[in-house]
Design a protein around this nucleic acid. Structure first.
Length: 885
DNA sequence: CTGCTCACG
DNA sequence: ACGTACGTGAGCAGC
């Protein structure tokens, strides 16, 4: 038994291998089991032989929503994964669960990349790693600590590769495997390589020059025939290498402790084996029971079997007397800074305070029931937090501000937020738990519970502050952090706490009206259908429309018929029920999500909605809003727009003022692309959609029809999103040819935009990331995927993110400025909402005039671009009735 | 808990 | 030949 060995398994590779190596077996029920049988067999064999301390499996995960969304017409033309194989993946995962082996998958990544990431972390923890796969690409991961078990022809034969073996077999080091592929290419993965260069040439060149880059650099020194092959193919070679390179820093939260191998859940595994009729495996399992790992298993907690990873502990002193509180404050004052970990729950208050002061032990200040900020530990906390001279570091400072607010404490001197900093370093991660970022950036494991664990968190915040700031400086994101994101934390906290006032009466009336309309529509729909069914169930609705009423099927989803609005609109002519369904859907959405959904979240104390603005959610830098989401309140259709009537000022004499950036994304595109036509249009104050229409349709500005403008508007949007003729055609309901000609015309008339797009994608490929105007960074590992779709997605994200993200930069900057001005000038106005390119204020009538000047100035001058930023301001008694001033 | 659908910029 | 526009959050149904 080797406790320090981790086995990582490429699930996709093994299952595919097994599927092709073993004839189509099935159980008596007809369930095909060949691949899952081979897979299970192989894993059991390796586990038995190696008896590792840890084990994990990785799977590919593509863009399932797109991949499976076939048009009915095309059904059956193409099968990526054979029907006999697809369900076996599910079975394999069931078996893994029963074996208590964790498996990892992440949207947009291949198993390879997850393995690379796991290996990286495991190596850092000092583990020995064995990779089990049928994919030779994995050989690039071989190192002194990592070896690869490669399946041969069949599946039971395994060949073990260490560094020496790779050298013997391929004549290159493991690290050069990717260079080999860059030159040689790989038809199976659609990697071009350099035509004319095969294995021999590639190896010989690499022996002399080390890498693809090395060869290109010394291209002059190469024999003429090689020069000839390589010239003009440099980029292709570099790209090929990148495509073959396994990503090792996939943004995933990996807890190696979850991977400790504890033996299977015998009972469950046996059940599955019986169902699948794996007789030999059943025999194997039952004969082994009671031996080895199975016997020492109880119902222990997961953490009980921790692998040999160092768990981080911090010493701490409990502080209880007033004298000691004073001493802590002296220490913190002296140091000038402290990391604060508040143990508490929003709305309930703080239970304990852990302070990490540089050079001192962590201090624990416990809060006794009934304590308040006038005496005891909370008064010490108040003194600390309200002293601006002492810099405070938090993880999730906005949450801390809420907790402090509960005790009447106002935070001054916020100097770092490790959650927000970790987000800037990798905005694509799914979450930023302190535990995860401490592991990622400090390599330490935080214990889950207890006072030492909490003390360790305070200490970790202190250390992370240093580490993350260093990284921000390295990436030149420190200004973005200090000047925008960090001050924004407090601005958002204030917006959340203020909330936006709601007219509950109006909300009730809307709900009642919607109740009547949905009921009436449902009755008619049921009558036309000839039976009662749940209209909200896409499954039942599909059966009615397509099985019973025999309407034509235009689109399917992974699980059945699609019944979305796009499909229903196509069916409108076919049956009168369809229009009623569209109306019903609309009304039902308004009622459940908005009328009733919002009403349920109104705070009875304040009469306001207190949304949470998340600062660390989007990959582009935008904010998101939740519980409730106030960034998607209806506006496009009159029926939904009414919902905006319920958003009102908090008191009599106040008004709602909205300020939105006009065409900010296209202005940013003009600035970044320097396209003449776009720059000119914005500088002249022209309507951009009219201008694009004039370019695309080749008519003078004054002859652009509304229809032309509409189409041009869709083209402009398409450009920002990464256009395709298909997407544009669908959006505009024109033919694909027509859409294509719009796009071609557009690029012919706006070559600057074309060049900009090409440049951004090229730079993204070179650097692996894209940036915004304020240097916000987004990594795009998708660009290097071997999967065509994922790669294309990466390219669209590469062009969209600088635009969307820069718009986010600008409005965030404006929010910080506005908030500061409002404070300094003692305005009673409250900023209440942000909707990506729009800010909403609740303002006393007397302040409106100066407010308009202030807001417009801060927003339009947040950043100076090569085109003007224009802000439209509206005013009204509620969010619905705001009118241009 | 996942998939579908739909609301917004 | 691939499959089809970027970024979100929420409610509901059904496994």
């Amino acid at each position: 038994m080797s406790l320090d060995t981790l086995i990582v398994i490429d699930g996709n590779s093994l299952i595919h291998r097994a599927f092709h190596a073993i004839p189509l077996l099935s159980n008596s029920q007809g369930v095909i089991t060949n691949a899952v049988y081979g897979f299970t067999n192989m894993i059991l064999k390796v586990l038995k032989e190696q008896d590792p301390g840890l084990v994990a499996v990785a799977f590919d995960k593509g863009k399932v929503t797109f991949r499976h969304q076939d048009f009915a017409d095309y059904k059956g033309t193409r099968k990526a994964t054979p029907d006999e194989l697809r369900p076996q993946f599910i079975l394999a995962k069931e078996i893994l669960k029963a074996m208590r082996i964790p498996y990892f998958e992440l949207e947009g990544y291949e198993a390879d990349d997850l393995i690379g990431t796991i290996v990286n972390q495991a190596e850092a923890s000092g583990l020995n790693i064995l990779i089990l796969t049928g994919d030779r690409d994995a050989l690039q991961l071989v190192s002194p600590k990592t070896r690869v078990m490669l399946t041969r022809k069949g599946i039971t034969e395994i060949e073990l590769f260490d560094e020496g073996k790779v050298w013997d077999r391929f004549g290159v080091t493991p690290g050069q495997i990717v260079d080999l592929k860059g030159l040689q290419g790989d038809p199976s993965d659609n990697i071009p390589g350099v035509p004319g260069i095969g294995e021999k040439t590639a190896v010989a060149l690499l022996k002399d020059y080390g890498s693809v880059e090395g060869i290109i650099e010394k291209i002059e020194h190469l024999p003429p025939r090689f020069q000839k092959l390589l010239r003009g193919k440099e980029d292709q070679a570099i790209l090929s290498k990148k495509l073959a390179t396994i990503i090792r820093d996939v943004p995933m939260e990996l807890d190696l402790s979850q991977c400790s191998w504890r033996g299977p859940d015998h009972q469950r595994l046996l059940e599955i084996f019986k169902e699948l009729e794996f007789k030999s495996l059943i025999k194997q399992l039952t004969s082994e029971q009671g031996t080895a790992k199975s016997s020492r298993e109880g119902k222990k907690k997961f953490e009980s079997d921790l692998p040999p990873l160092e768990t981080y502990q911090a010493g701490y002193q409990t502080v209880t007397s007033q004298e000691d509180f004073d001493e802590v404050l002296v220490q913190a004052s002296h140091a000038g800074r402290a990391a604060v970990f508040l143990d508490g729950v929003r709305g309930k208050g703080i239970r304990a305070v852990y302070l990490a002061v540089p050079g001192q032990d962590v201090y624990l200040l416990t809060v006794k029931p009934g304590d308040d900020s006038s005496h005891g530990s909370l008064s010490a906390l108040k003194a600390l937090c309200e002293n601006e001279a002492i810099k405070k570091y938090f993880h999730d400072a906005k949450d801390a501000i809420w907790l402090l607010h509960h005790h009447g404490i106002k935070l001054q001197g916020l100097a770092f937020d490790t959650m927000v900093a970790a987000y800037l370093l990798n905005p694509a991660a799914s979450h930023y738990d302190l535990t995860d970022i401490a592991l990622e950036h400090l390599g330490i494991v935080l214990p889950p519970e207890g006072e030492t664990a909490m003390a360790a968190r305070a200490e970790a915040i202190l250390r992370l502050t240093e580490e993350l700031f260093k990284k921000l400086v390295q990436r030149e994101e420190d200004r973005l952090f200090i000047e925008v994101e960090l001050p924004l934390v407090a601005v958002l906290a204030e917006m959340e706490m203020a909330g936006v006032a709601v007219d509950k009466q109006e909300l009730k009336e809307i709900s009642a009206e919607l109740h009547h309309s949905t009921e009436a529509l449902a009755a008619k729909i049921h009558e036309l259908a000839g039976e009662n069914f749940n209209i909200n169930s896409p499954k039942q609705l599909g059966q009615i429309l397509f099985d019973k009423l025999k309407l034509p099927v235009y689109k399917k989803t992974r699980t059945g018929y699609s019944t979305d609005a796009e499909v229903l609109e196509k069916l409108a002519e076919e049956h009168e029920i369809v229009d009623l369904l569209l109306q019903y859907r609309q009304m039902a959405k308004l009622k459940s999500t908005y009328a009733d959904g919002l009403a349920a979240l109104v705070d009875p104390q304040t009469g306001c909605l207190h949304s949470t603005f998340h600062q660390t959610v989007t990959a582009t830098g935008r904010l998101s809003s939740a519980e409730p989401n106030l960034q998607n309140i209806p506006i496009r259709l009159a029926s939904g727009r009414r919902i905006r009537k319920v958003f009102i000022p908090r008191q009599k004499g106040n008004l709602i003022l909205t300020a939105d950036y006009s065409q900010i994304e296209l202005r940013i595109l003009a600035h970044m692309s320097q396209d003449k036509s776009f720059l000119d249009a914005f500088r002249q104050g022209q309507d951009i959609h009219t201008r694009t229409a004039s370019e695309v349709f080749g008519v003078p500005l004054d002859q652009v029809t509304p229809e032309m403008r509409n189409r041009a508007k869709a083209v402009n949007f398409g450009i920002v999103y990464g256009i395709s003729d298909f997407g544009l055609a669908r959006d505009l309901k024109v033919s694909r040819q027509e859409a294509k000609s719009y796009i071609e015309n557009f690029f012919a008339r706006c070559p600057g935009v074309r060049h900009y797009i090409d440049r951004v994608i090229r730079e993204a490929r070179e650097r692996g990331y894209v940036t915004t105007l304020l240097n916000r960074r987004r990594y795009l590992p998708e660009l290097f995927s071997k999967n065509f779709n994922i790669r294309n997605f990466g390219e669209r994200a590469a062009m969209n993110t600088p635009i969307q993200g820069s718009a986010a930069d600008i409005i965030k900057l404006a929010m910080v400025k506005i908030s500061k001005e409002l404070k300094e000038r003692d305005f009673a106005t409250q900023m209440v909402l942000q909707v990506h390119d729009e800010l909403i204020f609740d303002a006393p009538e007397a302040e409106i005039e100066p407010l308009i000047v202030l807001v417009r100035d801060c927003m339009q001058n947040a950043l100076t671009l090569d085109v003007p930023l224009v802000v439209d301001i509206k005013l009204g008694p509620n969010w619905y009735e705001t009118k241009p001033i």
